[in-house]
Amino acid sequence: MIQEVNATEFKEKYGSGLVLSDFFSATCGPCKMLGFVLKDIEKLFPELSILKVNFEANPDLCKEFGVAGYPTIILFKDGEEKKRLTGLQQKTALVKLIEEFKS
């Protein structure tokens, strides 16, 4: 499920299970494209929590998690960062990443 969250909501949700977070900007072409990729991912992994964080609206959260640019994808498992990808990603790369840490 894809949800756009603020900093408080993010901190409530990222610590449980497998969470794919997408730090994005509304003024970034690759971020917009990544939004469509994540919709495909949502269809393939309906149980996966996908949290979208607006980079400009949540500067403190970005600083706390060391996110310096967008789009940045961080995969968390039970709150632990497992992998970080910067820039637009293809569906295959995200599927591979999720499969690696799913079980």
């Binding site: 900007s25 509304a26 003024t27 970034c28 072409g29 690759p30 917009k32 494209m33």
Partner: peptide, 9 residues
């Protein structure tokens, strides 16, 4: 030429 922030395919 496009504008910064546009999504182009």
């Amino acid at each position: 030429t496009f504008m910064k922030g546009q999504m182009v395919l």
